[in-house]
């Protein structure tokens, strides 16, 4: 009875939107990228995606059973574990051994999410935490288990992103757009991700400010610093299409639970992710920084929410006036 009686202050917004509906939209939006992954990388891609999604759902189920909490997976569940598993799978190289997605999913669901109390309580994006964990656990697999698209040969060389960072050419723009290149499962086909991202924005599931802030900052940075030995000559389009920037921008940085609530805060989050990605890509140890950039901005989210607050309607405009109002002890209000 107690949970049915909701007492909140006005305004009371009623919308047909549910967690389950939103997660379903995200899954739909991930379909093109998943299909592209299977087309380009074959059965191997399918097994990695399946292993990752199934173990995420299973981990959620087992933890909830073990702790006697309401089960949130299955036909009536909220679908969040499936999304986490899919996202993790899409961020892995195609030829990783299957224990990588399994351990990654289990870490993502149990350690990064469930122990805090389940969906809505985690402070970092679970899929990315899982990815960062397997990256630190088996760095070799995570940076060299690539497959050649369509021929499916194993390749251990550097990815196009690495070549791009060194100023080398990385193939035609068409190949980058459709995904005919080395890379993690879900990040190669730019068109498929953009399609999914556009769907999410059109459905009002995600706020455009985060991807725009992120990709805009990253593009600007690549334009300025992207070419070794010269300023203002980088190629922002290629730079954004390579690596995990697109997947991160539309599907990971926009996670409701771990991104700021205010529009302005979201813009700051996007810009922050862009800046940190740039830092790590060009001056850090790792070839790609999207994972860490989003995780780090997840950490900053409570602070952003704390300090970036909207002005009250009808309240003093400039800071000095606000301060005066504060000092006056609320006489103005």
């Amino acid at each position: 009875m107690a949970d049915r009686l909701l007492i909140t202050s006005s305004p009371h917004v009623k919308a047909p939107r549910t967690v389950r509906g939103i997660m379903l939209d995200v899954v739909i939006a991930l379909v093109p990228a998943s299909v592209a992954a299977v087309v380009f990388f074959g059965m191997k891609a399918l097994t990695v995606l399946l292993a990752s999604a199934v173990s995420a759902v299973l981990a959620e189920y087992l933890y909830e059973k073990a702790t006697k909490r309401p089960v949130t997976v299955g036909p009536k569940g909220d679908g969040s574990a499936l999304v986490t598993g899919l996202l993790l799978g899409l961020s892995l190289p195609p030829a990783v051994p299957l224990y990588v997605p399994i351990v990654g999913s289990a870490f993502a669901i149990v350690i990064a999410k469930q122990i805090f109390g389940g969906l809505g309580t985690n402070f970092v994006n679970p899929a990315l935490a899982g990815r960062a964990f397997v990256m630190a656990a088996w760095p070799l697999h995570m940076t060299s288990d690539w497959l050649n698209p369509r021929t499916f040969d194993a390749v251990t060389g550097a990815t196009p992103l690495y070549a791009f960072r060194g100023g080398q050419s990385v193939g035609s723009l068409t190949d980058l757009l459709i995904g005919n290149r080395l890379g993690s499962l879900g990040e190669t086909s730019a068109i498929a991700i953009l399609l999914g991202g556009a769907y999410l924005i059109a459905r009002g599931v995600i706020d455009y400010r985060i991807p725009v802030g992120f990709l805009g900052t990253l593009g600007l940075g690549i334009f300025i610093f992207g070419k070794p030995g010269a300023l203002f000559q980088g190629d922002p389009v290629t730079g954004i299409l390579l690596g995990g920037a697109l997947l991160g921008a539309f599907f990971m940085a926009t996670d409701y639970v771990t991104s700021p609530v205010t529009p302005k805060g979201r813009l700051y989050m996007g810009i922050g992710v862009g800046l940190i990605t740039l830092l790590i890509r060009y001056w850090g140890d790792y070839p790609e920084g999207v994972t860490y950039a989003i995780l780090l901005m997840n950490l900053a989210t409570p602070l952003i929410d704390r300090f970036v607050v909207p002005r009250y309607y009808g309240y003093a405009h400039d800071v000095e006036a606000r301060r005066r109002a504060n000092r006056a002890g609320g006489e103005l209000s």
Binding site: P97, Y99, I111, A136, A137, W138
Partner: peptide
């Protein structure tokens, strides 16, 4: 018997291990 997880020797692995053990 399995492929070792280098992360366990780094700070994140240490923090998480101790936290889980305590729980």
């Amino acid at each position: 018997l399995f492929e070792p997880m280098a992360v366990m020797l780094t700070p994140p692995g240490g923090f998480v291990t101790l936290g889980i053990l305590m729980a």
